[in-house]
């Protein structure tokens, strides 16, 4: 979350800073919770792809505000390091690794989770089919862990890109949960493909015992699950068109009067929406992590990069 002139006018971004959230995506989870009451009766939570931690912040704040929940446990997992958050146990680990599952289970004293969520997304390339595929893989890795750790009746929430094959994913999730809903919080722009899959009521498949094994790819993990996924066969005759496709019901969340993430707000209208901004250029709450192209930028600054446009 860097700062640019666009951010200055993004009211969710500014509100996030105001309220101390590490990213504007905090509002997405808050609005999802408003709609689905996700945190009710939730004591054991896993936040996957958690960095920089805005969802963990929301979880910590919302779950621990109920005094009865003082024994609740939130585990946040990411490959990247994350600065500490109250009541959140951070694990810097790979979510596909069986050790990670063990560590989480250890923190939960062997009990299963009520809620697993993931706000992770890959760096998009611009090749829509590849981006959607990689995002689906990310969701499947999260789901892989979720199937191992969720208790029956538990909930799973993850970010999705609503592209050309999203109906395949809806259909597959339909085998594992009582209810599968596509939810779009108002803080997520209408112009973006982003939405969230809200899966309620985990129903483990009869006779299928999930177990994480680092020798298995996600595809192999789900191979025998019989949730309508095509699997490799000797004749390589995957009948793609026969794969089940279902459209999950759509629910928009967040109050209609809340900030419209597509609208342009003038800076002087701030008072109307109760935001007090002291200075125009606020530092990001969480400094952006070093981008992979940092060195390229340095060279460019020094004039050592021959970039011709």
């Amino acid at each position: 979350m860097g700062k640019s002139s666009k951010d200055k006018r993004d009211l969710y971004y500014r509100k996030a800073k105001e309220e101390g959230w590490r990213a504007r995506s905090a509002f997405k989870l808050l609005q999802l919770n408003e709609q689905f009451d996700l945190f009710n009766d939730v004591k054991r939570v896993v936040d996957l792809c958690a960095a920089p931690g805005s969802w963990s912040q929301v979880l910590s704040k919302e779950i621990f505000k109920d005094k009865n929940n003082s024994d609740a446990k939130i585990v946040a997992v990411d490959l990247q390091p994350m600065s500490p958050i109250d009541n959140v146990i951070e694990l810097q680990a790979d979510i596909t690794h069986p050790k990670t599952l063990e560590m989480i289970m250890h923190h939960f004293d062997g009990e299963k989770a009520d809620f697993v969520c993931s706000d992770g997304a890959p760096d998009v390339t611009g090749l829509h089919d590849l981006d959607e595929y990689i995002q689906a893989q990310l969701i499947l890795s999260a789901l892989q862990l979720a199937t191992c750790i969720l208790k029956t009746g538990g909930k799973f929430v993850a970010k999705i890109f609503r592209g050309r094959d999203i109906d395949l994913l809806y259909s597959q999730l339909g085998y594992l949960f009582d209810k599968v809903i596509c939810a779009k919080p108002r803080s997520s722009r209408a112009s973006s493909l982003e939405a969230f899959i809200v899966c309620i009521g985990y129903r483990p498949r009869n006779g299928w015992i999930p177990s994480l094994n680092s020798n298995l790819s996600t595809e192999e993990f789900f191979q025998d699950l019989k949730i309508g996924r095509n699997s490799l066969n000797n004749e390589l005759n995957l009948e793609f068109n026969d794969e089940e496709r279902i459209v999950a019901p759509f629910i928009a969340c967040g109050d209609l009067n809340s900030i419209d993430s597509d609208a342009t707000y003038a800076l002087d209208e701030d008072d109307n929406i109760n935001i007090q901004i002291n200075s125009l250029s606020l530092d990001p709450v969480q400094s952006p992590t070093a981008p992979p192209y940092k060195k390229a930028l340095e060279l460019k600054r020094k004039g050592q990069l021959k970039i011709v446009k």
Binding site: Y133, S217, T218, E219, N230, L232, L236, N237, L238
Partner: peptide, 24 residues
């Protein structure tokens, strides 16, 4: 034809043998 995973590369070892590398 199809495999169960995204394909990144295919290579003919000879006219009758093909290798397919997937995204895992």
């Amino acid at each position: 034809y199809g495999v169960s995973d995204w394909i990144f590369h295919c290579l003919f070892e000879n006219e009758s043998t093909l290798h397919v590398l997937n995204s895992h």
